[in-house]
Design a protein around this nucleic acid. Structure first.
Lengths: 196, 196
DNA sequence: GCAGAAACCTACAGGGTGTAGGTTGGGCGC
DNA sequence: GCGCCCAACCTACACCCTGTAGGTTTCTGC
């Protein structure tokens, strides 16, 4: 009998494919084993346990998203860059729903420490160079940007926009425009609040 | 032996408590049965299956959130109302993480048709009366608002803000301010886009 | 060509879901 | 106040998933 030639990377890649097809929480070791034509127990030689497999998919997804962002903002600035940045997330979530779901959870230390997480931060920083923002406001802007983009993608995915017209794409355009407007005229912190 | 006196509502309420304590995906029928001092099989007389139990928790959570929003915006308008509205979501998520997680998923038809879902829509509409918005922009604003609030709460919950300073609360203040600013000067749709 | 390290296997214990069918308790008719 | 009967709760079981222990087979380095 010829061997399947498994490695941790192969197992994680197959798990990611399964997550996209069947949903992230249908991601079980037995299902991966079936897809690979292998006994379930054999997988434990490559991944410590189910949690490690899920973390692997999370790390894989973060790397892929980082690559998409990089191409999405390359050669652009301002609103165009913002659009490319935001679309990188949304397109990825549409094409890879299971991998996207893998990122919408508290990940284990291994996934958090992955270099791709740092990449995303650096790319976001690069995007914001196109906007004149006070240094002490940057972190707030980064968080707001992430919140809106992730939130929109998440709500679209779970069907929250299915019960109203028009199609989400129109709202997406408006949301990116709104973020661009906001970043160009970021409100200065209220002096009362910062002194209180 | 005295009976436990179960009803669907009791089972769902206990499941919600368990979700908050142990996490939404630790929400199993066996665990609920243990908490109630009952055999697992007995629960199937009250909930059809595990999916129905989860949907029950989702519907319960939506009702509770709607109630919080109502008190959060009562007697306020403009920025104060927005703040109350947004805090209703965030505070609820902090106090009831498991119930919150129950809402961050594609829910079954039963949960979607729940009256509390309609309540949230109506309350959001009431909030937006405090801002002068063209009728055709309302849906986009509602979606953006939901995206940012849900997204922030979600990212805060999964620890995305844990690796940068300052505390998320400061960014939350800025985010609500930014949304208020945005709603007061909602950018008109680009004529090019709407005609294209 | 052979020793050893992987890769892969079988076997099993433990726990979760869901079904079938039995037993018991409490409310209601009379 | 007695019995009926419904529903609440039970035991027993089949099936799937996780994770461990320990055996066998294939590939690789020398």
């Amino acid at each position: 009998m010829t061997r399947a030639g498994l490695t941790p990377a192969v197992v994680v890649a197959d798990a990611a494919a399964l997550a996209d097809e069947a949903g992230f929480d249908a991601l079980t070791l037995s299902a991966v084993a079936r897809r690979l034509g292998v006994q379930t127990a054999s997988l434990y030689a490559h991944v410590r346990d189910r949690a490690a497999l899920l973390d692997g998919v999370t790390a894989l997804a973060m790397g892929e998203v980082a690559a998409r962002i990089a191409t999405g903002i390359a050669g652009r600035s301002g609103r165009d860059a913002l659009r490319g940045y935001a679309d990188a997330f949304r397109d990825y979530a549409r094409e890879h729903p299971g991998r996207w779901a893998a990122m919408q959870r508290r990940a284990g230390p291994a996934a958090v420490a992955a270099p791709s997480a740092v990449d995303v931060v650096a790319l976001t920083d690069a995007l914001l160079r196109g906007y004149a923002l006070p240094a002490d406001q940057r972190v707030h802007v980064v968080r707001l940007l992430g919140s809106t983009i992730n939130g929109f993608v998440q709500l679209e995915r779970i069907g929250s926009f299915d019960h109203s017209a028009p199609a989400p794409a129109a709202s997406w355009d408006r949301a990116v425009d709104a973020l661009d407007t906001l970043l160009r005229a970021w409100p200065a912190p209220d002096p009362e609040e910062s002194s209180a």
